[in-house]
Design a protein around this nucleic acid. Sequence first.
DNA 1: CTGACTTTGTGCACACGTTCACAAGCGGTA
DNA 2: TACCGCTTGTGAACGTGTGCACAAAGTCAG
Lengths: 271, 271
Amino acid sequence: MAAQRGQRNGVGVTPPAPTAAEITTPIPRVTEVPAARERARAIPEAAVARLAVYLRVLSGMQEHGSGTVSSEELAAAAGVNSAKLRKDLSYIGSYGTRGVGYEVAVLIEEIERILGLTRKHSVAVVGIGNLGHALANYGGFPGRGFPVTALFDVDPDLVGVPVGGLPVGHIDDIARVCAEREVSIGVIATPPPAAQAVCDRLVSAGVQCILNFAPVVLQVPDHVEVRKVDLAVELQVLSFHVARRADNAAVLAEANGRAANGRAVDGMVVS
Amino acid sequence: MAAQRGQRNGVGVTPPAPTAAEITTPIPRVTEVPAARERARAIPEAAVARLAVYLRVLSGMQEHGSGTVSSEELAAAAGVNSAKLRKDLSYIGSYGTRGVGYEVAVLIEEIERILGLTRKHSVAVVGIGNLGHALANYGGFPGRGFPVTALFDVDPDLVGVPVGGLPVGHIDDIARVCAEREVSIGVIATPPPAAQAVCDRLVSAGVQCILNFAPVVLQVPDHVEVRKVDLAVELQVLSFHVARRADNAAVLAEANGRAANGRAVDGMVVS
DNA sequence: CTGACTTTGTGCACACGTTCACAAGCGGTA
DNA sequence: TACCGCTTGTGAACGTGTGCACAAAGTCAG
């Protein structure tokens, strides 16, 4: 991350003495050449996702007029514990003031920089069914720096029809249109059977990041990043918790009913 | 998990000699009462999500006519490595045959049982905007045992209008309707400001599992399970990867250009 | 029945992520 | 200036999840 910082914030932001932190982190990996890559990768995926959450909470605070926050406050608002929050923030640098807290504006700027939100990322949505419609009309995307600049479908009846103010293009034009409009993120909202083919087209059109809503495991080359949102899986995980809860209730009830004294359940299982 | 199995598969399926596996797992936890709970919880969240994926792949294989799969095949189709797959399956029991593989039908049955899919889970969707419409019309839910049985919105113009064959109810009726229709999963697709209030209503209506699409951190009591799907976060994580890639390319290019011999980049950073 | 071959199930080591606890550092106050 | 209280930043312990590698256990051929 030191390398990143060195690359881009040449002016402004008062670079705050990058001293001890740098030395301690990736040195143990001795005699390894791609140390520069290590550094950029040094921020855990889970932390990245949380940074996005912090960013939204901070935006809300800024609109509300807060100038500074403590890790405790911010953590509460984001639904995590404060130690984790501080560690997450430490991955991107030391922008807090001890005894005071963090300046909201500074944090927002830094998180946006790390997440690459200083530049806009054009989004293409492929598959204009129910979900595709919803995505095309969703205000949260352009509002956060992700303008939807292209829509595609196979259905000839849909091609040319404007959805969310943007005419639907035909799937065969993916390569050309994506190149023209510099699409950097492709969203797949097609039926499952079409997903892999669409994915291949996006990849060969140069799109390197894909958000996949189709319940399919996509095969992509190494340099392409895929994130999957699977509604059925989410529901099934919830279903598991319902079942677990029911089972626990049953087991506990049985245990209580059977013998009120000590570890009866344990004994039962072992025998 | 032994307790679970004991509870419900009394008939059929030829219970395959639960011997050594049982003994090795939770014994180290000495003299602890809630061992029964431990067992049900013993299956990691990450594994549960993957089980849902395996289930879908298996369903596809069954339709395709496959009778058995090896861990290698199934793992490839699900996009994980075979060791992880076997470990995941071992959490639910030993249903494979060494030297042969797993019987597709058996695995499907067992995974469905563990995920609690033997019983239907009614779903209520709150917030019939773009996304709510899409969810109400989404065929993947009822097809997988999650019938959408109630829709709600605040907008009086929407109340009574049928969406996806189901009339929209008013938010004030959540408690009554959810109880009537035995809703076990609530889906929140409202604008952010309304989400917490809707959540509170669902909880007080007895709903214990919530799938939240609103970009808000919900506050719920301990016994309620929340899963969050946040499209903005997904995009921002992708954006981070775009930025990281760009940075790496820049750093590596610089490193190569500056000095072809050894760790020039490291030196630069430390000094 | 034996032996060769295949694939599962899992002990073990490792890596990653989370949490704790505390020194370091800053602002305010006397 | 010296002290005090507060909050950050982070080493270190811990727990969880992942991947390897192999023994156990089955099938099949001869």
